[in-house]
Design a protein around this nucleic acid. Structure first.
Lengths: 348, 348
DNA sequence: GTTAGCACTCAGACAGCATGAGTGCTAACT
DNA sequence: AGTTAGCACTCATGCTGTCTGAGTGCTAAC
């Protein structure tokens, strides 16, 4: 059952109009938006047919039409004009990311806020890790007489650290040796490889630093677990209330509770990094709470099998085209920065 | 102008009642709550006087009374019964904190969420640093052939790191020496002490690692700046919408926008760590947006001049006594954990 | 100083009515 | 067969007036 060009044009105009004003679009308003020589009555006929086909809905008899989720789907897949980011839009994203090159972990925790500010929608960011976190290096440093810091490098780009206080007094040399022992024994392992035998073996080699072994290993396991579990960050929750569709407090509250819940949000599908921006419209969502909201998300990659995603949540009436373009550019830029190493070597 | 015992008792009952039900308290309802042998008419007379004194307000002529902010103030300062946390309430807090001993930075970023879950109010956490961040130690580690990680220990408990990619190939020994040079030159300095001369001096001592000096120093400055700037984390924004007083979307939105704004929130007064929990009631707030909300906050200390605060934001009708007790216990526990070193040495 | 009784006030709920935007249908037109 | 003008119909929204009940303030008696 194919739809005529004219119907498509009308549907597009309706979606565009509704996205803009959040109000049902009437036939009269359409004849202005469409510069076709057509009377409102004709448009009405077409609208009636579009409704029969399931692309439009009517809130009540004497109201204009509103796109159904099928309408949005068609719009997203075929009708919408791909938004091209303006120079200044790109510049905003560039400057957001430029500042924050340093530590990935810290950047990630701001990502939700960043994306929400960029899009004016509530945003979330997750760091998903497709592979087990591999230990690359373990090192102990001394901070002062009885304070040490254990540094753990996981995967390609994650560094974790933990302060350890101990009455043990170790010499610089002993610590250095200990670090070597740790790295030699642990490099290449995942948290599941860490066993009691391993602990004993390392303790045997660690000389005076032996009492610290358990602490360090526990920390390594903990950090790896924490990393494998997805990290989740939410930002811009206030934007939800800006949308007229969430002026119903109960709805807003439910949605807010939902998106605040890391575990729930983990169930959303994960877009492939580098792939297309993923758009889930209203009832396409499995979760009941999201059935009248849409989610737009993009994946990014950190290299080394580690990846993450950014996404925004809003009413089904979203500016899909613009938001998709923004998320796309943002995630690509992010991937690029992360992958090609955030070395600032070039500056030298 | 002193108030009789009976008036105080009535005021307390009104505040308690209003906190519970969010509805104006009527004279009739009061004679049940108060087990005094008094008729509702008498209570009405007292209420009229309390209103004249400014402790109560009447939403409209034929409604019950509601505490004014002065009423709340009196209640908080003198009338409310100090809430004693139950064993299970304490246990909840204990388990929240026990898990997260490791890395302070990561703990802090979860603090907002933690506190909000504890109190069922929107919560925020800030890390305020009263002194300049002093560099304790700088170390370079090698991750793989051309990837290094710089580790920076700031103050007593903050560790920051940055991955550095460079085509430079350094031997373990050279890196070790470089680390020593860095720490020797930088330990005890703040970011303001880092100058171009210093850079030159360090470069001169760094041998083959000289090209990395600038990157490392830039990173140190950046990290210190970032640390001195307060870290801010918000959690549980969904709780705002649970309060009937924010069923007005506009109000909720304004408040949500306000508390999401790090800079605005930085203007709130800072409670002394170890001191009493600070309670700011409605119009006592300087910020217009907070004039009908209350803020309860507590400071905690990390030792070494570094401190932070946790706080919750809600309607003026808050359960001050219980929330204050919770925040108090939470912050004290946190201080203790942080200060006495989060060493797990005892486990051995 | 306390209380019973009563008149008064006022928010909120409900119904009735007018308004106007927008449609669906029909009949005429191309 | 597709298009259009015209008109009747529908229905959300906003306004008005009325009723109800909760709660007070006041007065007069205890």
């Amino acid at each position: 059952m194919d739809i005529s060009e004219r119907k498509k044009k009308i549907l597009r105009a309706i979606v565009d109009g509704y996205i803009l004003n959040a109000e049902p679009v009437a036939s009269k308003a359409l004849i202005e938006a469409l510069d076709m020589d057509i009377s409102s009555a004709t448009v009405r006929n077409e609208m009636a047919e579009l409704e029969a086909l399931g692309y439009l809905e009517q809130p009540h008899t004497s109201a204009g039409r509103v796109p159904s989720h099928l309408g949005y789907r068609l719009y997203v897949d075929e009708l919408m004009k791909r938004h091209r980011l303006s120079k200044s839009e790109m510049a905003v994203i560039d400057s957001m990311l430029d500042k924050r090159l340093g530590e990935i972990d810290r950047t990630l925790s701001d990502l939700g806020t960043l994306v929400s500010r960029l899009t004016n929608y509530t945003a979330y960011a997750m760091a998903a890790h497709s592979e087990r976190a591999v230990i690359r290096r373990v090192e102990l440093l001394i901070v002062e007489s009885n304070t040490y810091v254990a540094v753990l490098v996981l995967g390609i780009s994650t560094v974790r650290n933990k302060l350890i206080k101990s009455s043990l007094r170790l010499l610089e040399d002993e610590i250095h040796t200990f670090s070597c022992v740790l790295t030699t024994n642990l490099a290449g392992l995942t948290k599941d490889d860490i066993s009691d035998e391993l602990l004993l073996r390392i303790e045997a080699q660690s000389g005076p630093a032996a009492p610290l072994c358990r602490i360090v290993l526990d920390f390594a396991v903990e950090a790896a677990e924490d990393l494998e579990e997805r990290d989740f960050h939410l930002g811009g929750t206030a934007y939800i209330l800006e949308q007229p569709e969430y002026h119903d407090i109960l709805k807003a509250r439910r949605l807010l509770e939902y998106v605040s819940d890391k575990r729930e949000m983990s169930r959303l599908p994960i877009p492939r990094p580098g792939g297309k921006v993923k758009i889930i419209i209203g009832p396409e969502n499995i979760a009941e709470t999201l059935k009248d909201s849409s989610v737009i998300m993009a994946g990014y990659s950190l290299g080394d099998g580690m990846q993450g995603l950014i996404g925004i949540v809003g009413p089904t009436r979203m500016n899909y085209s613009r938001m998709a373009a923004k998320l796309n550019y943002f995630s690509e830029k992010l991937s690029k920065l992360m992958q090609q190493g955030f070395s600032e070597e070039d500056d030298i």
